[in-house]
Structure formats: C-alpha cells, structure tokens
Design a protein around this nucleic acid. Structure first.
Lengths: 350, 350
DNA sequence: TTATTTCATGACACCGGTGTCCAAAATGGA
DNA sequence: TCCATTTTGGACACCGGTGTCATGAAATAA
C-alpha cells in the first residue's frame, strides 16, 4: 500500500485532491475554480488559483473525459487524395488548437467503402470526440452530417461552396474565383479556352466548372463541348485530358485546369508536343500548391486560404467552449486570389 | 434520476455492467475476458465473448485510460518542414494502427524554441500517451529521448542512420543510398560532380554528404571544396546554392542535391542560364517526391520507403501491446532505391 | 430581533473501467 | 471421508475528475 512516489518518473502527478488539501478547501471547490464557475467567492478563487499557478497543476484529461462523457479531442476526417490540402488544413487547425487543451486526432477514411459510416460513427462515439472537421469531398456527404447530429458530435464541413447546412460550413467561393481567372484569360484576348474539369461527384469540380462557364457566358463566348475534358484531379489525368484538347484544330489558346496537379499535366503534355507555354498556350491552375513554382514556366493559379480556413474551422468548433464573453465569430466564407505567374500571355496572332 | 435513455442519440451506450448482468457474472469477470486474462474458465469466457459479439459492446476508452493510467493514443512529433514526409509517415503509421484501438494524435513542435522540451513533456504526460513516433530532425535529439525514458513513454525515432539508441530506431541507410546514386553518375563518366548539402545539424544531411564523399573516394576522384554548396532543403536554397556551382569554370557536369526540392532548384537555375539538362548537366535528387515527375525532365532520385518505415515504427510501438504470442519483429533498417528518370546522361564531350 | 432568502462550500455518489484480495468451488492426496 | 491445494469468480476500493443536493453563513426583509 506504499505510495508509489519515485517508481519510474520523478513527476509526482498532482491531483485535484492535492490542490484541495493545500488550499484547505474541498476538491469540488477546486473543480469550480478550474471550470470558472461563477458562484465562487473571489478570495477563494484567488487562493486556489495561486496554488494552481505555483504547483503547475493540470487536471487529468482522462478523468475529465470520463466524468464529462466527452473528450477534448478534435477529429480530422478526410478521404481526400490531396496531400497538400490535408497538411495545410492540419496546420491551420493545429494553429487554432495550440495553447488550448484540445488535441487533434487524424482519421483518414476509405471513400467508397460502405463501412465508412460505421467506421466514423465508431470513431466519434468511442472516443467521445468533442467535434470533427470534415474535409471535402467527404464533407459533402449529408448522411454523414445527419449521423453526427444524431450522435451529438459537433462538426464543421469544409467546402467549395456553402451547402444547405450553412451553419456548419467553412467554405471558399470557388465559382467566383474561377470566373475571375477565366476573365483574366479573356482580358488577355483569349477566345478558345479549354477546361479540364474535376471528377464527377466532387462539389468543387462542379463549382469550378460553373465559374468557368459563367465567365465565358458573360463575355458572350460560346463553349463547344469539345473544349471540355474530364480529369481526376491527378497529374496523370491532366496529361491525358489535355491531349484531347491539344489535338483540336484550331487548338485552344488557353486551358484552365481545375487544379494545379492537372495544370502541371497540361504543361507536361504541351512540352511533349513542342507547344510553347505561354507563347502558344496559356495555362491556369487552381490551389497554388508548391508545384506551380517548381515547374517552368511557373504557373498562374488561384490561391485559396486553406490554412486560414482550417484555423477558422477549429475556432468555430471550440469557440463555444472557450468563448469567454466574446462570441467567436469566424467568417465562414473565404475568397480566393488569382496569383499571376508566367504561364499566361496573350494568344498568338492567328 | 430517470435514466437518460433517448435524450439525444439512440445509442444506449452499453457498459461493462450491462454485459456482466446479461452474462450473469461480475463486471470483473467481463474485464478479464476483455483483457484476455489466462485464469478464466473456458465456458465462462465463451459465454461472455458471445454476448460481447452479439451486443457489439466496446469498452469505454476514457475509463480504461483513467484506470490504467495510460491512454491508447500514439503521438506523432515533428518539427520538420517536409510536408511530403510528414504525410507519408502519417499514412504508414495510420495503416498500422487501422483496426486497432489506437488513435494517432498529431503534434508539430516549434524547433528552436527552448520550450520544446516542456511542450512535449506536457503533451505526453497529460495525455498519458501510449507512445510517440518522432520524426527527424527532432528524432536526433538525445535529450528528448532521455526525457521520454524518464516519463515512461515509449518512443520510436525515425532517422537516416542508426544512432546509439538502436533499440528505438527505425532508419534508412542514407549514406549507402547516396553513394549508389553518385556511383551511377561516375559510371556514366562524370568526374566533376557538385554537391548541394543539407543544413548543418541535420543528421540526414551529414549522412548524405558522407555517402557522396564515399563514392568519390572509391573512384579516386578528388573533391575540391568549391564543388560543395550549402543548402537548406528548400527549393529557394537549391536555386541559390546551385548558382555558385554553375558559375564555376570548368562547370560541374553533374550535381547531386541532398533532396528533391533543392534538385528542382538546380533545374530551375540551370534553365535560367540556358544550361540543358541532362545534356550539359545531370541532376540527382533525394526523396522521390511528386515534384520529380512534374518537372521537365523528370528527375532521377533516391526513393526511401517512408510509408513502410512509418508502418514499422507504429508496429514497433504497439507490437508489445498486441503481440499475441508472435513477437513483432519489424526490420529497423530500410534500404533505398535509385529511381532512374531523365535527368542523368553522360557528360558532354569536353 | 427573528424569519427568509441568497450565496458559498462541502459531502457524497457517480462516470466505466482495473487491481487486490478473499471466498467458494473444484481437485487431489491421505 | 476429510483436509490441503489449486482454480475460478466476486466484493470492494480506486483512478481523478464532475453533478446533485444539503448545510451553514451572510444578507435582506419583516
């Protein structure tokens, strides 16, 4: 029955009882101090807080989790292949969580598997997660949102447009961003502009396509079906999709690819055919990933504030928990910027 | 005092007591079944296990964490700027953790801050982590390893070479891998080969440099100091470091860059000067990141099995916990492969 | 001054598991 | 048949917090 004091570590592991004893109050009173209960005498609070400061006591998260029936863990759920995006999101979320008691737990899921729902349900209920951030395209799954509602798990959905569930969304305005990019091409004099679309079923792909069509319609430019090619958001699909466009006669003088990977694929395909970029072909991508500056010429692209959005999502989740008076009111709609590099030029004189 | 049955979710949340009642045994007996205690009657075990199967009962991790004083969380600690590596490691670890009761918690730390140690200590002790995986260069910090030992926290260090602490290492053999790459250049006829080294203080940088020098020494090629330039593992540093090499006369006919980002920088700098790759200059990088195939020409590089190493690290950590008889014996040293692409050719006839 | 209300605090049970220790049952030897 | 020894299972305390309710003190009203 000897207290295990120096058994392995030298950290004596203070508990709430130790603090209570030192302060000469009950453990419940210490608990009140920790949880900022309003019905506390000022003196008592100060005394206990001083001791907590002094000793560096930190409540045991496991015990809290058990008593509260809720953990201080935020889950990050994704089924997305885009590593850059995942890591930037992760970065933003972690920035917001830094200094709080929250930790980030990663959960990649297997899109397509029909066990996904049960998998996620088990994840959030077993771990009693405080909340989750869902990355696209999984975030577009309304059934998932309903399930989380049922389970009483908070969530924020990242997206390329505000869906019905606006309350839980942090979104970028992809449509308008793409329209701006295409307007830029039109302003340079381009009229035959090709589109490499993203995969069917991705909301972002749809939004970007709509933005593309919007800009052309505004300018009164017709869009033959042949100028649209389907891609899968991968480099390889960018190469193969652009081949059908580059074989056209007359060839498009510019191509908007729905993400940077595919834009890099266009550049690659153009080089294989000896087509000069940007002299004979202008290219614009989307995401502003590092690859845009590694290739030659550096690619004009659209930058969306992923890190800031990740931060906003996390704050939105934990805001109610740490909101000390000021209601955390993060913007839910973020806008993107056209980054002009060297892959756009006026079309060649025909 | 009414049981909250259908208050928010429809999950009745089975507890060990429910199972015990249903099986007609005490909760402790159920606990024994869960923990595979050997001193149990076969019939009792089967009966309880059947009920667990039937009801889908899963023990509450928070309660277990509290009672055991240890969580089923694995921490991933990194201070590394290389997003590709972080994500690949994460992927490997998650693969190994999939289907187990373990979850992955992410912890980026701020290298250079002198609070790092306390930060990590707080992280592992508060959360009572089962163990952590440490990515380079943080993994080279011996003081950190000692601290984790003190705190009784398991750990695995990822590295580019086996350090003193071999028991806790999962490593790749960078030195030999680089030597192979440089031997390849020599075999093609190169004699004036430049090196862009990684940052001082990174073990990987040192190992790669040693591999470079090893191959030259073997071939009896002398290495003037002017053929070595310092980089920071970034694209930009690759550009500036290569400038000093490309200004030399005679110019090196090949450059080994200590990672792909810097190799991409060399390519960029070469293009700015109108130097043809690979005709006038061969380039080899290290890491086999996606950028190597996005640029033109695709870069020859060294691939190290990051995902497999992450998997091995995780298995090494949890192996003792899930080891059912068979002692998990993952290899601790991984070897790399030279990936030949189009950035290497024989040197120009001088 | 006394009755009533408000406020601050504490005692105690509880969250859902696990460790310790002891009792009952089963087994074996004399 | 009885006692000693080994299994097998349960009662109970405990991990470190939080919720509920009771209690005593102080403040207000009568």
């Amino acid at each position: 029955m000897a207290k295990q004091k120096q058994d392995d570590g030298q950290a004596p592991k203070l508990t709430i009882n130790d603090i209570a004893r030192m302060a000469g109050v009950s453990k419940k009173t210490v608990s009140r101090v920790i949880n900022r209960s309003p019905l506390l005498n000022r003196e008592t609070r100060d005394k206990v807080e001083a001791i907590i400061q002094e000793t560096g006591y930190v409540p045991n998260p496991q015990a809290r989790a058990l008593a509260l029936g809720r953990n201080f863990l935020i889950g990050l759920i994704y089924d997305n292949p885009n590593v850059q995006m995942i890591l930037s999101m992760q970065k933003g979320i972690l920035e917001a969580l830094h200094g709080t008691e929250f930790e980030l737990v990663i959960r990649p899921v297997d899109r397509g598997s029909n066990l996904v729902m049960d998998d996620i349900r088990g994840f959030v209920t077993r771990q009693r997660l405080f909340g989750v951030v869902i990355l696209p395209p999984m975030s577009e799954n309304d059934a998932l949102a309903r399930m989380l509602d049922e389970e009483g798990c908070r969530y924020v959905r990242m997206g390329s447009a505000v869906l019905d569930d606006a309350e839980h969304m942090v979104a970028s305005n992809d449509r308008e961003a793409v329209a701006d990019a295409v307007r830029h091409l039109i302003a340079q004099g381009h009229r035959r502009i090709g589109l490499i679309a993203g995969p069917h079923g991705f909301r972002s792909a749809q939004e970007r396509r709509e933005g593309f069509e919007l800009a052309l319609t505004e300018a009164g430019i017709s869009l033959p079906r042949s100028l649209i090619a389907d891609g899968q958001y991968t480099f390889e699909s960018g190469i193969s999709a652009s081949e059908s466009l580059l074989d056209l006669s007359p060839r498009p003088t510019a191509i908007f690819a729905s993400n940077d990977e595919m834009a890099a694929g266009v550049l690659y395909a153009a080089r294989l055919r000896g087509i000069a970029v940007p002299e004979e072909l202008s290219i614009i991508g989307f995401d502003d990933t590092p690859v845009t500056t590694r290739v030659w010429p550096p690619l004009t692209t659209v930058r969306w504030p992923i890190v800031a959005m990740g931060r906003a999502a996390a704050l939105k989740l934990i805001g109610t928990a740490i909101g000390e008076g000021a209601e955390v009111n993060e913007p839910s709609m973020f806008s993107s910027t056209l980054i002009r590099r060297a892959s756009v030029a006026p079309p060649p004189a025909s």
